[in-house]
Design a protein around this nucleic acid. Structure first.
Length: 226
DNA sequence: TACCAGGAGAAAA
DNA sequence: TTTTCTCATGGT
């Protein structure tokens, strides 16, 4: 990756966010399988509610791939009820546990797999879309994959780098083509974007908090296409 | 009361 | 192929 104005700009964003918020210590979970479960449960759900559902799974002794596979669907749904969409997510968790089982319930077995084939496998699992697959690859498996979510779109869109409705792949390439493929960097960068978006004021479209407020409309000011 | 939260799959157009 | 609908609890 060459040093470009865009890569310097993305690095500047990262440095400012890190200075403003510090390390985020993501993903907030104990172990890789808990990360995978959280990635499903957090779909269109507030993390506080996901925490309740994960707490319920722990209390029920059901936070393992074996337990999720063996629990009756209705019982699993009841356990994860606080995070919403519980019937749909119970089906998704079972599909994920089945997939993990096909790898021997062993995260180590995934470490040597190449990213693209592993991503294709995950996308074929019911309930796993691009964001969920990439969250699992980055935060559970430890692959250098940049996660794009609604928060990332909102911030990058408001900075003027890309239209908010641009495709997932284009958003992902914005980061991967301009940053070193580094697991720690991708981990922290995404977490910091989420932190900023949660702090930002939704009622003011260009209010991105003080640390980035002067960087808005980068594309217009610098005439750089991405 | 209404809106939103660390999406994705299925159905309809 | 693209858009719309559905899934649903809990906090603000």
């Amino acid at each position: 990756m060459g040093e470009t104005r865009l890569s310097r700009f993305l690095d500047e964003i990262y440095q400012r966010l890190l200075a403003a918020y510090g390390h985020q210590h993501w993903w907030p979970a104990n172990g890789s399988f808990e990360v995978m479960v959280g990635a499903i449960l957090t779909q269109s759900a507030a993390w506080s509610n996901v925490n309740k559902a994960i707490g319920n799974l722990k209390k029920a002794g059901a936070l393992s791939p074996q337990a999720i596979r063996s629990l009756p669907l209705a019982e699993l749904a009841l356990i994860i009820r606080p995070c919403g969409y519980f019937n749909a997510k119970a089906v998704k968790l079972k599909a994920l546990a089945d997939w993990f089982g096909s790898h021997g319930d062993n995260i180590e077995s995934l470490h040597d797999a190449d990213i693209e084939s592993l991503r294709r496998e995950l996308l074929a699992v019911h309930g796993v879309g691009q964001e969920t697959a990439d969250s699992i690859l980055l935060y559970a498996v430890g692959k250098p994959v940049f996660v794009i979510d609604a928060y990332t779109r909102r911030i990058i869109g408001r900075l003027g780098l890309l239209p908010e409705k641009e495709s997932y792949g284009v958003y992902q390439r914005l980061f991967t083509a301009n940053l070193e493929a580094d697991v720690h960097l991708y981990n922290e960068y995404h977490a910091l974007l989420v932190k900023l978006a949660k702090d930002a004021c939704r009622k003011k479209p260009l209010c991105l908090q003080c640390c980035l407020s002067d960087m808005c409309c980068y594309n217009k000011n610098n005439n750089i296409g991405v």
